[in-house]
Design a binder for these strands. Structure first.
Lengths: 203, 203
DNA sequence: GTCTATATTCGGATAGAC
DNA sequence: GTCTATCCGAATATAGAC
C-alpha cells in the first residue's frame, strides 16, 4: 500500500487546487450570496472552463459539501489556536466568545454551517463527522465546567447561537454581541448554581 | 375622495386574490424551500398562467416582500391573540415563549423574517414598518418589566433568537426549546436584579 | 385580468477531442 | 486534466391579443 512519489505529488497538487477553488467559492459567496454562487463564475475566478470543475467536484451539492467541511475545519482550527484557560468556567466563557467571534468574522460561513438555508443541501456523513467533532469538543468543555444535563446543554447552545445570530444579523463586521458573551456565561453559571442550591435544599 | 361601490368591491376581490396567492406561496416554500419557490409552480397552484401573476406582483422580489409583510402581520396578530399577564415580568416571559413558539410553528416563515438568506432580497420600507411595529411592542413590554438599557435589550433579543433558532434547527415541529423560555427569562431577570443590587452597593 | 407566445438569460451537467 | 461544444431544463420577464 505504498504510494509512489509521483502519485504523492499528484495528490498534493490536486488538494492544492481544490483548496484554491474553495477559496474562490467563498469569495463569490461573499459577493453574491451563498445560494447565488454559480459554477460558471467560479470557473472564471479560478481560470478554468466551467466543465473542468467537474474534475474536482461531482456536482454543485458536492461543492457546498466541501465548503461545509472546510468551514468546520476552520472552526476547529480556530478554536485550536486559542489558549485554553485553566479555570474551566473561564475556558467555557472563552469558548463561547470564540464561537460568536468566529460567526461574526464570516456571515456566509455562519449561514452555511449553522443555518439550513440552501434548498436541497444536506451535509454528507463525512462532513457531519467534523461537525460532531466540534460538538464533542464543546461538550467536553461543558462537562469540565459542571454542565452535565441535556437541558443545561440545550440552554447553553441556545445562548451561543443567539449571540452569534444577533451579531451576524444586526451588527455584521462589528463586535457588539461578541462583548456580551462573558456576561451571558456568567448569567448562565449563576443560574446553574442557584438551581443546584435549590435542589440540594429541597432534598 | 369617495370610492365608488364598484371599485370597493374590485379592491376587495383583488386583496382576496393576493391573499390566496400568498397562501399558496407559503405552501410551496414549505414544500421546496423558500429560495426554490418558482412563479411557474405558484401560478399552477392558484390556477393561473405564470405571466398573470405579474398583475399582482411586479417581480419575484415583490412577492418575497409581500410574504415578509404577511409574516409580520401574522406575528403581530398572534401576539395580539395572547392574553397579556398582569405581572409585567410574567408578561415578558409569555412574550418570549410566544415568539419562540411562533418561529417553531413555521420554519420557513422564521427563515424569511429573521434570517437574511435570499440573495438580493431586501424588505421594502413599507414592510419594515411592520417589523418596527413589532419591535416597539417588544420594547414597550421590556420597559414595563424594567429593562431599559440597550445592552439589556441586546442580551434579551439574543436569548429569544437563540431559543428560536435552536428550536427550528434542531427540533423542527417539536417544542423542546420552547419549554426553556420561562427558565431563560427567569435567569435573565435574576441577573438583572443581581446587577442592580451590585450597582447600588457600589455607590 | 387573463391569456398565448416568446424573449432572454442563466443554470447545471454531459460527450468527446486533445 | 483541460478543453470545446452542446444539451437540457428552468427561471424571470415582456409583448400583445382577447
Amino acid at each position: 500500500m505504498t504510494a509512489s512519489p509521483q502519485s504523492d505529488r499528484r495528490v498534493q497538487r490536486r488538494e492544492a487546487k481544490v483548496a484554491a477553488i474553495l477559496d474562490e467559492a467563498w469569495k463569490l459567496a461573499h459577493r453574491d450570496g451563498l445560494a447565488a454562487v454559480s459554477l460558471r463564475d467560479l470557473a472564471d475566478a479560478v481560470g478554468l472552463r466551467q466543465p473542468s470543475l467537474y474534475v474536482y467536484f461531482e456536482s454543485k451539492a458536492d461543492l457546498y459539501d466541501a465548503m461545509f467541511a472546510d468551514g468546520y475545519r476552520q472552526l476547529l482550527a480556530y478554536i485550536g489556536t486559542r489558549r485554553r484557560a485553566d479555570d474551566p468556567r473561564q475556558a467555557l466563557a472563552n469558548l463561547v466568545t470564540d464561537c460568536v467571534r468566529f460567526s461574526s468574522d464570516d456571515v456566509v460561513r455562519h449561514q452555511l454551517l449553522f443555518q439550513r438555508t440552501i434548498p436541497g443541501f444536506e451535509p454528507s456523513q463525512a462532513s457531519m463527522t467534523l461537525a460532531v467533532e466540534f460538538y464533542n469538543l464543546a461538550r467536553e468543555r461543558c462537562d469540565a465546567a459542571g454542565i452535565r444535563t441535556q437541558a443545561d446543554m440545550d440552554v447553553l447552545t441556545a445562548l451561543i447561537s443567539g449571540l452569534a445570530h444577533q451579531q451576524v444579523a444586526n451588527n455584521p463586521g462589528g463586535r457588539r454581541w461578541v462583548r456580551y458573551a462573558d456576561r451571558v456565561v456568567e448569567m448562565f453559571l449563576a443560574d446553574l448554581d442557584r438551581r443546584t442550591t435549590l435542589e440540594r435544599n429541597s432534598r
